[in-house]
């Protein structure tokens, strides 16, 4: 029995909102980063669900691109966090307050 596309979309919307809230609320940069990945994967789920719904391949191929891009972002993001952790032994985003005005 096929699951209606609306179910996938609801799940994807929930994941996206959880991710967005996580970015806004959490303090640890790693957790913020995981929330970002949740947002990307919410979009991926929507792409795949729509691709299935329209019986097209386009949406699934887009997901490959998105995963590649997300992997590149992980590399850069983790490198930045390691550099910051070395300098100040914390990656709490609330302590990032040298720059203000």
């Amino acid at each position: 029995m096929a699951v209606p596309v609306a179910y996938y979309l609801a799940l994807s919307a929930v994941l996206f909102v959880m991710g967005a809230l996580g970015v806004l609320v959490r303090r640890n940069a790693i957790v913020v980063f995981m929330s970002l990945e949740l947002m990307f994967n919410a979009a991926n789920l929507a792409f795949v669900a729509f691709a299935r719904y329209y019986l097209q391949l386009d949406g699934q191929i887009i997901v490959f691109f998105v995963m590649t891009v997300a992997a590149a972002e992980v590399a850069v993001g983790l490198a930045l966090m390691v550099a910051i952790f070395r300098a100040r032994h914390s990656i709490d985003v609330d302590q990032m307050s040298i720059l203000k005005g």
Binding site: F40, N44, F47, G59, L80, M96
Partner: peptide, 27 residues
């Protein structure tokens, strides 16, 4: 370093929003 992390987190956030918008338009 601090500027880079701020830019990275908010830049990735905006990419996520943009990507979700593309997914909705595709749908």
């Amino acid at each position: 370093e601090e500027a880079a992390l701020k830019y990275f987190l908010l830049g990735a956030f905006s990419s996520g929003v943009l990507l979700y918008g593309i997914a909705l338009l595709y749908g």
